[in-house]
Each structure stands twice: as structure tokens, then as C-alpha cells.
Design a protein around this nucleic acid. Sequence first.
DNA 1: GTGCTAAAAGCAAATTCTTTGCGTTTGGAG
DNA 2: CTCCAAACGCAAAGAATTTGCTTTTAGCAC
Lengths: 189, 189
Amino acid sequence: MAEREAGPRPGGRSARVQASVHRAVRALLARMDRAEVTIPLVAAEAGVTPSTIYRRWGELNELLADVAVERLRPDMVPVETGSGRGDLLAWAEQYAEEMSSGLGREMIRDVLAAEGAAGPRRCCCYARQQIAVIADRAATRGEAFPDLDAVLDGVIAPILFRILFDEALGGERVGVLVEGVFAGFGRRA
Amino acid sequence: MAEREAGPRPGGRSARVQASVHRAVRALLARMDRAEVTIPLVAAEAGVTPSTIYRRWGELNELLADVAVERLRPDMVPVETGSGRGDLLAWAEQYAEEMSSGLGREMIRDVLAAEGAAGPRRCCCYARQQIAVIADRAATRGEAFPDLDAVLDGVIAPILFRILFDEALGGERVGVLVEGVFAGFGRRA
DNA sequence: GTGCTAAAAGCAAATTCTTTGCGTTTGGAG
DNA sequence: CTCCAAACGCAAAGAATTTGCTTTTAGCAC
């Protein structure tokens, strides 16, 4: 946890530019189609020159991915329901809903479209961390809770797979996935 | 199944142009980095003018996605091993390996990066069809075989999720996934 | 076959985006 | 305070994208 975001020391000029560019991207994304957003537009909105953005991010995809990863970072701890299973179900349902929205889907695609695997990895980490919180709480209560990877494969993976490749899963289907993971416990290496 | 690919009547000029553009894309992709491929380059390689490509595909992403979907179409029936479980395992292992390769991963990302959900849907259909073949064979033999969606969620989804967001799964892990799907039978609605 | 038509391709100019060299500003370190 | 390296602005050069117009082509009716 040495790095914060993609920016250097906080407070410097560099950080201010990054912040205003990110803000500009969010503003543009809110009022126009993603296909119409261009770097010169973002630059104008942010009050910087295009070359600044080109030098820092290289291309639009990288910038959009950068912004998307930041927006995908969870901003609250999973709600507590009394049981690990309940926590996971509640969290997974909310996760599925957020990611299924038009904006959510676009952000995932932006993250995947960027070069390198850093962005996707970080998104994976976000989910993993949230689940770890739930798992820790369950352990504290003395409950059994499935392996982290089992949850990733059994719940997160299908949710994202359906959003990306097929049709978003409804809440009941998410519930079935959670049940499945809890039913299939000790089978994993 | 009224449409063939993305092209109009076969044999026309339109189809010839599409074929040569696709060929050009594959040729360029084979000898340079994807980031260096541009529409003017493809046009030159294909012997057409850039505006032809712009009018037909709009942007590079769409063209790359178009080519990628075609390349992702399975070109053979799943190998027969004697049991549904064996068939599925063999097929899933090969699928995971193909998709994990640098080229495979790039093609998936290209498909996802394009506008609209048609490309990803088609990829999903390809996998579904292949699994359906295996399931049908199993049914003919009188074997029990898990639900198609269970296989998609339990095997395909984790494979693709790991490739896209984390680290590709090894063959053993694929085997575990297949086992899991067979172990978790009638639980699904 | 001949001529007609609509769809698609070519061409080229206009526009917009991207890259790059160079000078200036800025925040931090000595 | 002074210096330095990193980052930014500016502007010109280079590429890509869009677009109006013309030409070609394949299919169809006669």
C-alpha cells in the first residue's frame, strides 16, 4: 500500500492536474455519450492543454480506465446482516446491481480495454477485499465461510461474465450462486 | 439463423472487400503490435481506401472486434472421450488454454471493447453451442449432465473472469471447476 | 444482352486529433 | 535563496477521421 492512485505526491501541481482531468472526464461522461468524448474535449473541460493529457495518459482509453478504476473502488464496508451468508448475499446483490447499470458496464469495459492488466487486477482486488471483510467477520463469529477464491469463481465471476457476455443476472440468480458456494464447501484444494 | 456473418450477400463486391479487410487485419496483427495497427494501415494492406473502412466499421475497435469474433468461432466439434464429464473437461481445458494465450486474451478484449453487445453475445453462444453438443451426447448415452447455464456459470465464467481480471487458471483448477459443476447438480431452479 | 437502380467504393478536401520540440513554470531539496 | 527535475503550455508538424461528390458494380426487369 505504498501508492495511492496513479499520481505522485499529493498536493503538488501534478496532483491538481490529475484531479481536474478526472473531474472533467466524469463531467463529460455524465452529459454526453462515451463515444463522443475526446481528449481535446476533456482538456478544454479541465482547463489544461491536450498535450498534457497525451503525455500523461497516452490515449483516451488509458484515461477512461484510470477514472473508471477509481470510480469502481468500493466506498463503504459491506453491510452487516448477522451472518456471513447474509452479508455475502447482500453485498453480491448490490454489486451485481451496480455493475449491471449502463454506467457500471461501461466502466468495466473501459478498465478492460486499457493496456496492461493493472486496472482489472485492481478491480479484482477491490472485490476480494470486500469479501475478505465479510469472511473475517464470519470467522470472528465462529462461522464457517467458503474460501475467497471459491467466492470469486462462484459468485463474482458469473455476475461479471453475464454482464459482459450475456444478460445481467437478476437478484434471485445471485442468491442461487451464493447458495451454491455455501453448499459446495470443502471440495476445493 | 438468417444472417451469416456481418456481410451482405455472399459473392458480391461487398463480401470481397470485407474478406480482404479481414485478411489484412489478421496479417497486420500477426506482424505488429495491436497498438500500432491503424485504419489507414489496414486499408493499405487490404488495397482499399480508408474511407471504405470508416464507412463500414466506423472505428478500429469495431473492425478488430468483428475480426476477433470470427476468429473465436469454434472450428471443430468437442473431442469425444466416452463420458460427458470427460468431454467437458477436455473441452474446458482446451478452451482455457486458447483463451489464456496472448492472442486469445486480446481477442476477447477486442470483442468486449466494441459498442453494443452483439459480439460478446455471439461468443457466449459459441461456448453454449459447444457445451450443448457435449450435453446432447451425454443425454444420448443416458448420462446425467448439468444444466447449460450451470456450466456457463460454473466453468466458463471463472475461466474468463480469471483471464480478464486476474491470472489465467491452470489445467488442474479447470478440473476442479468441472468437478464442482458435476457435484452441484439439481440445486438450480 | 441492355439499361436501370441502389449500394458500395474511390477520391480528395476539410476537419480534427495526435505527436513533438522547445521554452516556461512549479514545487521541493539542498 | 538558489538550483533542479518534473510537468505544463504553446504551437507547428504529422496522422487520422469525416464528408461531399463521382464512379463502379452487382442484381434485376425487360
